[in-house]
Design a protein around this nucleic acid. Structure first.
Length: 596
DNA sequence: ACGCTCGCATCAGGTGGGAAACGG
DNA sequence: CCGTTTCCCACCTGATGCGAGCGT
């Protein structure tokens, strides 16, 4: 499990990850006042994103390309900041004004400073032509205070979903996000303490409806929703070294539509169905006791990844999304119509084009039954049960992994490399953000990835969805978590350098620029040229097909037209050969990868 | 005897599908 | 009537506990 959340799996004895963190000076005791620092209910859905007037950051300090420093500066909407936090802090609108959640110790250490008044406003990254968060990302500048750089670990997976407009199920009891948010952070002060939390805010002022195979707006969003919108990482507060040592995942974060929920509020974020949301990562420097240090604006920072936008739904609307979930979420494996066949089909029959079928694809993929399944490479990399890779992932040093077929982790590497090397090697990324991962993967900059992945070896946070290479490497080996825990610490390689990644600033700059461009493209492609994945007319057909619900075992059913349609469409643009039994999800993937 | 590894069984919990219920 | 929400289901993953086998 992305244990970042202090999941029980990672810490068997700590039902509440927060417990583990309580070791932090900031966490002991239940500070009654602390409970007010963050409120889970204080902010309504109308808590909008405040465009950070971040001027404190500059590309100059770009970090290693492995990280994609995001700053919300790209946000379009400019809500009025409230509370003592200037908009530049990004916290003005994010934090609940009052009332603190009963929850966990993790929440007990936020200073009252977080009790900010709601700041109306929204971020419409997707809808703003040039003002997307991505296109405007900036790098933190050097100097006092936080200079964090954040990398969305499972970005490629997010991009896949984003391509079809990500949907997240919300239920009364709460549903985990999938993909879930998972980050790597760099640039923090090793010794300083930080609180890390995710906030989900309305991404736009509209109410959405899935009609005619596509999402269309229908009326205005209901900004009156109440309920917690913040999920504080259970390991908060903790040192910069801790946060940078491993992937920080929010796999336990749950989404609910139950405003009245009183239990598990610490794990729940209350949303409204058919509204579009944008998750945001906040990193706030605090004192050792967990109290925010308000001496500097640089103490807090907010990061927004446009590709993590999603529409909350109570039932999936777009079958492409459904299929993506099924294909990537291990818990949904039971819904994979062709689960068995997917592992045995010959390579030429695979449904998803391997990343260009590059030699590397084979190099990095373990010589297991999965080797020939590019689609699953992705899945593994992002969400498939890591158990399938445990053996090799865990024991293969990255240096070896790069050369050995055992580096099944290659998939993971690919993802990771993506961001890391974009700067240096993905100058051709262009608008195909979705392909970036592969491009990056095949580029030569593997070392950074390797280094990074190694750093994750010691991750204590094993995730349910070893989404990242790091998790993968450190995640449980099969069901024997106890063993992995024993082994991980003894791994010979050391965590990545706390100082950051070995990349020269020039490279970094280039990297960032690339990323920025790519990101911008992403936004653009989605908002303006979503059909780019499929021609407009094709998209229509596609959407219609997608809308059709699929039965439990209709894989071969003649009614399963969606896959066929997609396949046909996809094949038009690719040399990739796919003929029969193209799983719906696969088709989607196919089109995704092959679309210009 | 002790510690470690491994296999197996069990349990808790997550997943999407589908039908029923609900509400405008 | 239609769209949305809720509930239950079967299936799956992952964690855990237990005992057996093995080496020291």
């Amino acid at each position: 499990m992305l244990g970042g959340e202090g999941e029980t799996g990672t810490y068997p004895s700590t039902k509440d990850a927060g417990e583990e963190r309580r070791k932090s000076p900031a966490v002991d005791g239940d500070d009654p006042t602390a409970s007010n620092r963050y409120t889970e209910h204080g902010m309504g859905a109308d808590r909008y994103y405040i465009p950070p007037t971040i001027t404190k950051q500059s590309p100059e300090t770009a970090s290693p390309c492995s990280f994609i420093p995001y700053t919300p500066s790209g946000a379009v909407y400019t809500p009025s900041p409230a509370g003592r936090y200037p908009s530049s802090l990004h916290l003005g609108s994010v934090l609940p004004p009052a009332g603190f959640s009963p929850s966990t110790a993790a929440r007990n250490h936020f200073s009252p400073a977080y009790q900010l008044a709601q700041s109306p406003g929204c971020i419409y990254p997707t809808y703003t032509g040039s003002g997307s968060a991505l296109s405007n990302m900036a790098l933190p500048t050097a100097g006092p205070g936080m200079r964090a750089q954040v990398y969305l670990c499972n970005r490629p997976l997010w991009l896949k979903f984003h391509r079809h407009q990500t949907e997240m199920i919300i239920t009364k009891q709460g549903r985990r996000m999938f993909p879930f948010l998972s980050f790597n952070i760099a640039g923090l002060s090793v010794a300083a303490h930080y609180n890390v939390f995710v906030e989900v805010v309305l991404a736009d002022p509209n109410h959405w409806r899935f009609q005619g195979g596509k999402w269309v707006t229908c009326g205005k969003a209901d900004n009156s929703s109440q309920g917690n919108k913040v999920y504080i990482h259970p390991e908060s507060p903790n040192t910069g070294a801790h946060w940078m040592r491993q992937e920080i995942s929010f796999s336990k974060l749950k989404l609910t539509n139950n405003k009245g929920t009183s239990h598990n509020t610490s794990q729940m974020i209350v949303l409204q169905s058919l509204h579009k949301y944008q998750p945001r990562l906040h990193i706030v420097e605090v004192t050792e006791d967990g109290v925010e240090d308000i001496s500097s604006d640089l103490k807090s920072q907010c990061f927004t990844f446009a590709e993590t936008q999603f529409i909350a739904v109570t039932a999936y609307q777009n079958t492409d999304i459904t299929q993506l979930k099924i294909d990537h979420n291990p818990f949904a494996k039971g819904f994979r119509d062709n689960y068995d066949s997917m592992y045995t089909v010959p390579e030429n029959d695979r449904l998803t084009p391997s990343p260009t079928d590059s030699p590397r694809a084979h190099q990095i993929v373990p010589g297991t039954r999965y080797t020939m399944q590019p689609l699953f490479q992705d899945q593994f990399v992002n969400n498939l049960p890591q158990t399938r890779f445990y053996n090799s992932e865990r024991t293969v040093p990255q240096t070896n992994s790069l050369l050995s077929p055992q580096a099944e982790d290659g998939g993971s590497q690919r993802w990771f490399v993506t961001s890391m090397q974009q700067g240096g090697n993905c100058s051709s990324t262009g608008n195909k953000l979705d392909l970036t991962p592969y491009e990056g993967d095949y580029s030569s900059s593997l070392l950074p990835y390797g280094i990074k992945s190694l750093s994750m070896q010691t991750s204590h946070a094993l995730s349910y969805y070893p989404d990242s290479p790091f998790n993968t490497m450190s995640a449980g080996w099969g069901s024997r978590a106890a063993y992995q825990r024993k082994v991980a610490p003894s791994l010979p390689w050391s965590p990545r350098p706390s100082a950051g990644f070995p990349e020269d600033s020039d490279k970094v700059k280039a990297h960032v620029e690339e990323e920025v461009n790519g990101s911008g493209a992403l936004i653009t492609s989605w908002t303006e040229t979503q059909p780019s994945a499929l021609s407009l007319d094709k998209a229509e057909t596609y959407s219609v097909a997608c809308k059709r619900r699929r039965g439990p075992s209709t894989e071969d059913s003649p009614t399963n037209t969606k896959c066929v349609d997609l396949a046909s469409v996809a094949t038009n643009n690719s040399s990739y050969s796919k003929e029969t039994a193209l799983p719906k999800g696969m088709a989607a993937y196919y089109s995704f990868y092959t679309n210009p």
